[in-house]
Amino acid sequence: MRTATRNKIHSAAIKRFAIKGFATTSIQEIAVRGGISIGLLYRHYKTKQELFNDLVLYAGKGLEQMIKKFQNGSSPTELIEQFTLEVLHDLEKDNEFAQFLMIMHQSSIMEGLPHKFNI
């Protein structure tokens, strides 16, 4: 149940942050879009920034995994080609990937949010 609730929160938050940005997205919007109460959302995340940070870190870990998959001794040109094809494939099958990229970009220009990854 806890994982299902967290997934609802993440899915709703990713979409709202990607569409409206961090500053103009409210906790209430995320809760409504996720089909949960505001109180339940606050049981998982104390603040909107904490939720955003969690999503950014999750996206960063996903990128790390994708990059590690390509560390196989290929030439730089082959690595760039493989990585680009993987990104395009992910974008075609699921626009949530694009939304993750958008919130990662937002985090890179906002103060006080994590945007450094060990890639």
Rank of each mutant, 00 (worst) to 15 (best):
L51E: 01
M104T: 08
M110D: 13
G39Y: 00
T77P: 01
S11H: 13
G73M: 03
A31N: 03
A59V: 02
L113K: 14
F70H: 09
K46N: 13
V32L: 05
H10S: 12
R2A: 09
L51V: 05
T84F: 07
E81G: 05
F17L: 04
F117M: 09
M102G: 08
H115M: 11
L51C: 06
Y42A: 05
A18H: 02
E50W: 03
L55Q: 00
F70M: 05
T5R: 00
K48H: 05
I36G: 03
I109D: 06
V87C: 04
T25Q: 00
Q99S: 11
K20P: 01
Q71F: 05
M1N: 06
M110E: 15
L79D: 08
F52C: 03
G112A: 05
N95G: 05
L113V: 15
A31M: 01
E96C: 11
F70I: 04
S108H: 13
L79Q: 12
I119D: 00
L85N: 15
F17W: 03
T24V: 06
K93G: 10
I30V: 11
S108L: 09
K8Q: 10
A4G: 07
A4N: 10
V56L: 04
G73A: 00
Q65T: 12
K8F: 00
K61N: 13
H105F: 14
I30H: 03
F17E: 01
S108N: 14
A4K: 09
F100M: 09
K20F: 10
E29V: 07
M66I: 04
H89K: 15
K61I: 11
A31G: 03
